[in-house]
């Protein structure tokens, strides 16, 4: 049955209102304070480390993102841990919160489709996450210029922009997951817990689980060296189901220009290559492209799950 009128009516109004809500909310304030403080700490540690090795590295600025000073993880290490948390904080009660506040039926009685409500909430959250990521990037770059006294090169800025896009896509996956869970469960506490469990699973337990599963499915045969490769490939592919792994791989490809492959590299493939020389930006993009496609596909799939579950919902609680 065809419905008349655009499903996007009211989209921008909802997105802007959501973004404004987030930017003034206490929970966003806490999440941002946490992220900014850890960012400053980790970058400060990285700079201390880098000062001893200035001149040895053509991509000094990128090292700001990836260098870890012993007790602290690197800046990107922090981000892959904390960005999902910020995204979850933004969206865990997006849909069920409207029921909780009894605003859902009043909102849907306005001339908009449910599509606009869900997409508007997603875009509003994404806008805030975008602001958050850009702020962090500028903060790190600014600290680098001030404390190292070096301007970033053109390629470093390009790779930095790549880092922005990838980080945004990574947070978008978690935003979509939280949004989906918020329409799946009627209580915000349940959806928050479910989202946090998924977050723990993917950021802590997933890397421990995949070798076990791969070891059971493809046991090592000492007489057949191919089984070792098969097992590794399986483990690698399984681990890539986690958005955190995809994000980590993409950051490796983007921020370490000498990365030539994200998987196994045979000696025969390395013939004639100068080990340790950086790849041009376009070649690094090619390496991370499959991961990026997978991440975007993940956003689409999870958002669709949320869309279906929300469209089928009865408005009355």
């Amino acid at each position: 049955m065809r419905r008349e009128g655009s499903p996007w009516t009211g989209l921008s109004t909802i997105a802007v209102k959501e973004a404004a809500d987030h930017l003034t909310s206490a929970r966003m304030l806490f999440a941002m304070a946490l992220v900014v403080l850890t960012a400053i700490g980790s970058v400060y540690g990285a700079i201390g480390q880098l000062k001893t090795t200035v001149g040895e590295d053509p991509f000094l600025f990128l090292r700001l993102f990836t260098t870890a000073q012993d007790p602290l993880p690197s800046f990107v290490g922090f981000l892959s841990f904390l960005l999902p948390l910020v995204a979850i904080a933004l969206a865990f009660d997006a849909i069920n919160g409207e029921y909780q506040r009894r605003t859902m039926s009043r909102l849907l009685a306005q001339p908009i489709y449910r599509d606009a409500l869900l997409a508007g909430k997603f875009l509003g959250g994404l806008l805030v996450l975008g602001i958050c990521v850009v702020v962090l990037w500028l903060l790190v770059t600014g600290m680098g210029i001030l404390l190292l006294g070096l301007p970033p090169s053109g390629e470093e800025i390009l790779r930095g922009l790549g880092f922005l896009v990838v980080s945004l896509a990574f947070s978008a996956v978690w935003l979509a997951i939280a949004l989906w869970l918020s329409s799946l469960f009627r209580s915000p506490a349940t959806s928050a817990l479910a989202a946090l469990s998924l977050w723990l699973l993917f950021s802590v337990f997933w890397p421990m689980l995949t070798p076990l599963v791969a070891g059971v499915l493809v046991p090592l045969d000492p007489l057949n060296p191919m089984t070792a490769i098969q097992q590794f490939e399986l483990q690698h592919n399984l681990s890539r189901l986690s958005p955190n792994v995809l994000y980590g791989e993409m950051l490796t490809g983007l921020l370490h220009p000498s990365t030539r492959s994200l998987g196994i590299l045979f000696r025969s493939q390395m013939e004639g290559a100068l080990v340790g020389t950086p790849l041009p930006f376009s070649q690094s993009l090619l390496i991370i492209w499959p991961d990026f496609s997978a991440l975007v596909a993940g956003i689409v799939v999870v958002f669709t799950l949320g869309y279906v579950s929300f469209q089928r919902q009865e408005v009355r609680a």
Binding site: M1, R3, G5, T9, R101, R106, I112
Partner: peptide, 24 residues
């Protein structure tokens, strides 16, 4: 209302049972 919900919702004002607003 099934085929032209936007036109219907433009013409109808609705006050739900114990209506809620955004408290903040």
């Amino acid at each position: 209302p099934l085929r032209q919900p936007l036109a219907v919702k433009r013409a109808v004002g609705y006050l739900p049972d114990s209506v809620g607003f955004y408290d903040q």
